[in-house]
Amino acid sequence: MNGRKGTLIFWGVASLILFCLVVIGLFVEEAATVTDFSRTNLPPSLQYPFGTDWMGRDMFQRTLAGLSLSIRIGLLTAAVSAAVAFVLGLCAATLGSRVDACISWCIDWVMGIPHILLVMLISIACGRGFTGVVVGVALSHWTSLARLVRGEILQLRQAPYMLAAEKLGVSRLKQAGRHVMPHVLPQFITGLVLLFPHAILHEASVTFLGFGLSSEQPAIGVILSESMRYLTTGKWWLALFPGLSLVFVVVLFSLLGDGLRRWLDPASAHR
């Protein structure tokens, strides 16, 4: 087996896991909110692998529902971010130096503010909750990808084969379809996949800090911030398992992105 086949198998397995998490999470959302005071504060057991909390909710189901929500928010925000990044990057690279200066300035400006602060500010401005978090994360994560798209297109426009195509009278549209897309798209998709872990982590942190999703929602951030109150009383399972699962999902996404990048990067493409 060579490197690429391994990567392909890994992709299949990882995507399947993530897909199952989303679907299962959706189904257990109801059950996750069920309180049962006959089973409060149970440590992990076979019946409740992640234990239960002070209201008798099954932590395993809560975690699943939380991860599912996180992944869905991640997908949504990453998609919005990527779309913004693509449009702005494209405009910066093709609409002349003034537009470029303006967009580049915006990119620098957004990048200059710490992510978490920006997400918090936007989230508060949008009234917190689901909308707040999605808008906040989506509007703060497009910058690096926009810069990548801009740089890639600018470089392509100077490539001799693009110049030659232009002088041979190949139409702009055909140039974009034949030369630009095949080069930019793989980079773009890699960037998009690598956006997920960021988006998910930032969503969780903002929620944890209390500026994001409301406490009724089964979000990982909510679970973690609630568990802080009970950690000191020895209820370690409340934070440990949800935290670990979050890390697991984030690492899985970032490995997916890395594999994609290795495949497409000329310096390591033949490994």
């Binding site: 060579n2 690429r4 086949k5 392909l8 497409l264 493409a269 033949h270």
Partner: peptide, 12 residues
């Protein structure tokens, strides 16, 4: 030189 057949392929 060991190379992949094409940019997308998995055979070397």
């Amino acid at each position: 030189f060991t190379q992949y057949e094409s940019r997308k392929g998995t055979s070397r």
